[in-house]
Simulated scan of single mutants.
Amino acid sequence: MIQKNPLVKIDFEIFSELEQCNGDEQKLKILKMKGIMEKMNKEELKSIMTTELFDRLDKLIEEKKMTLANTIFLLKCMGYCNALKCSFNLCYERSLLHKRFEKMIIDEAKKKKGKKEKLLIDLDECYSTLCNGFSFEFLSICVPCILKVVLNKVERKESRDEVEMAFLSLSNIEYEIKKIGKNQYLKEMIEIINCYQQNHNLTRLAYQSAWKFLIFRLWSERSLEDVIADDLHFAREATRELEELAERVDWSKREEREREWKNILCINR
C-alpha cells in the first residue's frame, strides 16, 4: 500500500519527519497529514493507522521527541477521519500508546483537586474516536466529560469545530450506548437538538452526530421512539437534510472524487 499509493506514501514520509522537528514545525506537518488523510478511503486510512505507528508515537513521547499536546493533536486528527469514515480498526487498542492514554484518563478522572479538564476532554475524544469497544467505566468518564464541552460551547460560533469533534466522538459510541441509562443525558440532547432547529448553531456533521448518538439508544430504550419521532420531528429533519445534501452532489462529475466523497459520506450518515 505504501509503495503503490501516493497518498499513503506521502503521509508516512511526513510522519517519519516528525521527530526531527520542533513543536511548531510538528504541528504544521500534522496539519498536512490531516489534509491527506481526509482524502483517503477506508482502506488507505487503515494502512496508515497501524499498531507500529501508535507504538512509535508512544516511544517519541517517552524520549521527549514529541510533546504530549502534539501527539494528542495528531490522534484527534486521526480519530476525526476514522469516525467520519466509519472505519473499523483495532490497531490503536493494541498499542502501547492506548495503554498510556487509558491510564492517564483514569488517573485524571480520579483527581478531586487540580484536575486538568482540557486534557481529560482531549484524551476522551481520542479514546472514543479510535476505539471500537467501551467498558462501562470509560463510558461513565468519557460521555459526561464530552457532553460538558458541547453544553458549554454550543452557542459560541468560534467553538463550532470543537463542538463538531465532541459530537463526532459521541456518535462513534454505538453499540455500547445501551449501557447508558434511559434518562441519562436525554434532557441535554433534546435541548441541543431543539436549539439547533431554532438557531442553526451547529455544523451539519455535528447535528447528524447528535442524532446518531440519540438514535442508537433505541437498541435498549424503545420508549425513546416517541421523543425522537414526535418531540424532535426526526422524519421532517431527516427529509430536509437528505434533500439539501442530494442537491449538493453532482453524480456526473466523477473526477471531483474528494469533494463528492465527503458529500456521499454525509448522506450515508
Rank of each mutant, 00 (worst) to 15 (best):
T203G: 09
K253T: 13
D230A: 09
P6R: 00
D122R: 09
Q184I: 09
M66V: 06
E93C: 07
L245M: 14
D231E: 15
L123Y: 00
W211E: 06
N82F: 05
S128Y: 04
K42V: 00
T67M: 00
Q20R: 15
F138D: 04
F54A: 04
S135T: 10
D226I: 11
S95H: 05
D122E: 12
T51E: 13
D250C: 09
F101I: 05
Y207L: 01
V163Q: 01
K157D: 13
L139S: 05
A166M: 05
E25T: 13
E93W: 07
C126Y: 01
E174Y: 11
S159F: 09
E241P: 10
W211K: 08
F88N: 08
V227H: 03
L75K: 04
D124V: 09
N152R: 15
N41H: 07
C126D: 05
D122N: 13
Q3K: 15
E260Y: 07
M78Q: 00
S220I: 07
N5C: 06
Q197Y: 11
L168W: 03
K187G: 04
M165F: 06
E221D: 12
L265T: 08
Q20I: 10
I193D: 08
L45H: 12
G133M: 11
L84N: 08
C91F: 07
D231R: 08
E255W: 10
I192A: 14
C86V: 10
R56V: 02
E162D: 10
K153Q: 08
D58V: 01
E13T: 12
L74R: 12
T71S: 11
Y92I: 01
M78R: 01
Y185R: 02
N194A: 00
T71F: 11
E158G: 10
S87C: 13
E260F: 05
N268K: 15
N263Q: 06
S95L: 00
I72Y: 02
C86A: 11
R240E: 14
N268S: 13
N263P: 00
L96R: 10
L45K: 08
K111N: 00
K148D: 15
N152K: 15
V249G: 01
T129S: 00
S223E: 14
R236S: 13
E43S: 09
Y92A: 01
I146L: 02
H98C: 14
E117I: 14
L224T: 03
D107K: 07
I177W: 00
L202P: 03
R94F: 11
E62V: 01
F213M: 05
E137Q: 03
E260C: 07
E244P: 00
L265W: 07
L96E: 13
R160H: 10
L28F: 04
